[in-house]
Design a protein around this nucleic acid. Structure first.
Lengths: 354, 354
DNA sequence: GGCAAAAAACGACACGTGTCGTTTTTGGTT
DNA sequence: AACCAAAAACGACACGTGTCGTTTTTTGCC
């Protein structure tokens, strides 16, 4: 009874769809792509049929015709890092608002080349790296991307250089932490898990150094790290082990700075199990401000990463790079951190500074 | 000096690649796809050039030619649920071993149709749902997938029926928990956050009921829920609120079963803050067996989801469905849970059972 | 009813790949 | 040198889309 004479169960192409609507393929095409010179009634008819059938043009054919896909590849180190997951989650949401699809991949150390090749074969518009990667391997990936004139962006681990990056200003973050604790009377600081070659770590050490010097303290004396005594496997467990080692020391720092919240919580429980009171006997600072911070007693003070700003800047940068021609110009952005003071930080005990 | 006379900076097609190697396009193509009748030396030459240039055939062109893409779409409710993230992480890993790409998307309640359309436009080979979804909306999605003869799989929330599913046997899980606690002398149980319309919840209530009856107890008396007293926002906070409400009761259960670990930890801290000793005064069971369980004192007993089995079965099911023609046959799998006993569970206090 | 303008249809091409049948070249053997 | 089979090259088609110039149909107006 209705117009369409051929009504295939599944519509596979614009040709079939056009036949179903009773229009020509070109008319449907320009209706779908918003070209001018169409009667409003026709546009409505196409739209109605679109809603009714749920037809969507084959993305592969669309992307094959265009030079570049409306996709952004995201390489992650892991799904176990809650902060990285939060970032990719927000990033996907924001990119989708811009009409961009996000293709999330875990970049395994061995098969990173293969994974990147996969993204390149899909002709993604850009590739984003989130997390920690082997510096030389990352540099190779970025080099390959550049050779394929595909823009890239590294979030949080800029690496040795030559990469576009957006990252938290970790130097400033540690300066803020130290400044705050010094103002509270602390003069000796234990570092929990802040060691290694990643720039996310070396930046923090730089910040600690600067702030200590600015306060007239000698970093070699005022900052203590026992990281080398243990092998890092699980963050939480590592925090416990380090705390135990500090407990065995004769003279102990009055404040502790952890590489992340898990490590801080591990240390906190160990200190408390030894009968120490927090924050009366010692102060403790986490990093990342995860939900976990609310689940300890007292609640954990931490550094907030300001993920919203990080992602907003990242998206803006990406859009600019995708839109324009590829330039050799390297862009770098720093996002300001802020401290979240909770129950694990307080004045230094007595005059026990040093 | 070398053979290739034309060496474009970027190789964009097999034609350019073939010219670069000094072979014809068809020869290169059959070398790439492992066709017989080629000299080993030629194959090696192609492979070497492949490694050297990093060229990968345009995936869109490949997928355009084939009927179906070697991609699997994964719809998630959220990235904030650690268990769901763990599942998608393992799923992606396993699917990649099978040569399948995973496209992860968050299915926002409003724009779920649009997101699914996006996956369909990419002609994915299958769509997996992980998490909790609105039943009617999920049913509509599955219906649309079936109309497009695209296989689907729902992990963990089978919904009202008519969907292929792989999920933890939550009925059995709660039976195991109750059986264990009854054997320890517990006769009255508090339910923390186990309420709502999702099947992942109703299944658990069924399990509680069955096990209680089997133990000769009346579920209406032995199982107490105060969920309706509070609005659920954050799991941890909800656990705290519920514990406070139980503390205000005259007669209290001796054992508590939480909907997840976060809720359990919230309750644990509240009970302890009130001076109750765990497990001497009360027992507490979490659900999911996350890392968080190790971060409390005492450590939290919990139900392990057996994610490896879940994903293994899921991958097997998916491969079968992708390979064969679409059938109307619905498949359902249940994965066995197991209990992880830690410090928050013990014998019921005195004879205070009832 | 006629006429011009607007709307729609038509037809063809390009995007990059896999495949297949046919033709040409290569390389080894008699 | 001749021959023959293996190896490579050649040419063409299909996949589904966007676009564009051209032709046909519809619409609106006098």
């Amino acid at each position: 009874m209705a117009k369409p004479r051929t009504t295939p169960q599944v519509i596979r192409s614009t040709a079939e769809f056009a036949a179903h609507v009773g229009l020509s393929r070109s008319t449907v095409s320009r209706a779908l792509n918003g070209h001018p010179g169409l009667k409003q009634k026709t546009i409505d008819r196409v739209q109605a049929a679109l809603d009714a059938t749920g037809f969507r043009p084959n993305a592969h054919a669309v992307n094959l015709r265009g030079r570049r896909a409306a996709m952004v590849g995201v390489c992650m180190e892991d799904f176990r890092n809650p902060t990285a997951v939060a970032k990719v989650s927000l990033l996907q949401q924001r990119l989708r608002e811009q009409g961009l699809t996000t293709l999330i991949e875990v970049l395994a150390p061995g098969s990173s080349r293969q994974t990147l090749g996969h993204l390149l074969s899909l002709r993604v518009g850009a590739v984003v790296f989130i997390g920690h990667f082997d510096p030389s391997e990352l540099a190779a990936q970025i080099d390959e991307l550049t050779r394929h004139s595909t823009p890239h962006l590294v979030i949080d681990d800029p690496g040795p250089g030559g990469a576009n990056s957006v990252s938290l200003d970790r130097v400033r973050a540690m300066e803020l932490v130290i400044e705050h604790l010094v103002a509270q009377g602390h003069r000796s600081f234990g570092l929990l898990g802040i060691s290694g070659a990643f720039q996310t770590v070396t930046d923090r050490l730089t910040g600690v150094d600067r702030a200590l010097r600015a306060a007239g303290l000698d970093p070699a004396v005022a900052a203590v790290s026992l990281d080398s005594l243990h092998v890092r496997r699980d963050h939480f467990e590592y925090g416990s082990l380090l705390a135990r080692s500090f407990l065995a020391q004769r003279r102990r720092p009055t404040a502790y700075l952890a590489v992340n919240d898990d490590t801080a919580v591990g240390a906190l429980l160990e200190f408390q199990a030894a009968g120490l009171r927090v924050p009366e006997d010692l102060s403790l600072f986490g990093f990342n401000n995860q939900n976990l911070c609310l689940m300890t007693r007292p609640k954990l003070s931490s550094v907030d990463q300001n993920i919203e700003d990080t992602i907003d800047v990242s998206v803006k940068t990406l859009l600019a790079k995708i839109g324009s021609v590829v330039t050799r110009r390297i862009t770098t952005h720093r996002v300001a951190p802020h401290l979240v003071l909770r129950g694990t930080t307080g004045p230094a005990p007595g005059n026990a500074g040093r």
